[in-house]
């Protein structure tokens, strides 16, 4: 999974801003979203991201996998990540 060419990400106190500058669309995410974005930027796979988050959050792995999958799908639907 790769970020599209015109996507810019900036960390903020609340999490991160994602700016898809070609379509001029702005998205906001919280700190967990920011952590996922950082992992995606490092080239982590879905399972690697889930494994990392399981160690940080006291939630069942199935819930974490669902949440991460949904988040990644939102990024793809909004042309932030390539499919």
């Amino acid at each position: 999974m790769v970020f599209t060419a015109h996507t810019k990400i900036r960390e903020e106190k609340f999490g991160a801003v994602i700016f898809e500058t070609l379509k001029e669309k702005i998205f906001i995410t919280n700190r967990t979203g920011k952590d996922i974005l950082n992992l995606l930027q490092k080239g982590s796979t879905l399972e690697e991201i889930v494994d990392t988050l399981v160690n940080s959050y006291s939630a069942p792995i199935t819930n974490i996998r669902n949440d991460v999958t949904n988040f990644i799908n939102q990024l793809k639907d909004n042309s932030i990540l390539t499919r």
Binding site: E12, F14, G15, I18, F27, I28, T29, N30, T32, G33, I36, D67, V68, N70, F71, Q74, N78
Partner: peptide
């Protein structure tokens, strides 16, 4: 971790 709208 959703995309959120509450930030100004």
């Amino acid at each position: 971790m959703d995309l959120i709208n509450s930030v100004t």
